[in-house]
């Protein structure tokens, strides 16, 4: 069994905790036995199994969210050693110790590492990030999507609404109502779809509302932080072009 050879090695964690949405955050240190292949999730699970902090005091287990454990659901996003990312993909072997774990404070903190990402889902509703196909009768098959377009659109569809791009963006904060990079990229995705394209103008107009695309300040942190490698800045610039064109079209045709 593997545990014999590495039993002496320790992993040190400093977790920023918060008991309730309105209460003050504090840090708590933990020291765990190292196991090969450990990631931040399994370290947090270890704390859950044995909720004892570094001082040896019994404590309340750390709360966090996770689902898929393979970096496709976006639920376990947190700030690890200063970088927003998914805890399931953060391998302990590749992290500098002590590992500092904080919630993504751009979002309201519910408890410990659990955050409320509702604003992202509201943003998707605002820009109508879906394809309306329901009718009172069978509308038949929609137009086909060219393969070349499908290839880049597929990359955009990898967005898991994890919130890392919003956490990385200096313009998403309590002083602004900027919708954030994720929803802007989703407008590009749904406007690229041959059926979704039929409602393209509604989505562009949603981006031209207050807190829409104009909130981007070109720091380009989003594209560097995105765990799925989505070309967010290309999407933003493309939407800048389309909203600008739409602006002139509206002026000249209405």
């Amino acid at each position: 069994m593997a545990e014999i050879t590495t039993a002496a090695k320790k992993v040190k964690l400093i977790v920023t905790r918060q008991d309730a949405p309105e209460s003050a955050p504090y840090t708590e240190e933990f020291e765990l036995n190292y196991r090969p292949g450990m990631n931040v999730i399994s370290a947090l699970m270890e704390i859950q199994r044995n909720p004892v902090n570094a001082k040896g005091d019994h404590t309340v287990p750390v709360c966090w969210e996770f689902n898929c454990l393979e970096e496709v659901c976006g639920a376990c996003s947190m700030v690890i050693n200063g970088k927003p990312r998914q805890a399931c993909a953060a391998l302990v072997d590749k992290l500098e110790q002590p590992i500092r774990i904080e919630p993504m404070k751009t979002f309201p903190v519910v408890r410990d590492l659990i955050i409320d990402r509702s604003r992202m889902f509201n943003a998707l509703k605002r820009v109508k990030a879906w394809i309306p196909i329901d009718g009172t009768y069978d509308l038949g098959p929609g137009p086909r999507m060219p393969e070349k377009k499908r290839q880049w659109a597929y990359e955009l569809s990898k967005c898991m609404t994890c919130g890392v791009c919003l956490e990385a963006c200096p313009n998403v904060n309590e002083k602004t109502n900027f919708i954030g990079p994720a929803a802007i990229s989703q407008v590009r995705l749904f406007n690229a779809h041959p059926t979704g394209e039929m409602n393209a103008e509604e989505r562009l107009e949603a981006l031209m509302e207050d807190g829409g695309i104009e909130g981007c300040g070109n720091s380009q942190n989003c594209v560097r932080a995105c765990p799925k490698g989505i070309p967010l800045t290309t999407s933003i610039a493309e939407m800048n072009k389309q909203t600008t064109k739409h602006m002139f079209k509206r002026w000249l045709t209405s």
């Binding site: 313009n171 904060n173 602004t176 560097r224």
Partner: peptide, 21 residues
């Protein structure tokens, strides 16, 4: 007004575009 709305995070994201921001 735009400058006052910013919350720079250059310590966490050290790359050239963010510095230019």
């Amino acid at each position: 007004y735009i400058a006052l709305q910013a919350k720079p995070n250059n310590g966490r994201f050290r790359h050239e575009r963010n510095l230019r921001y």
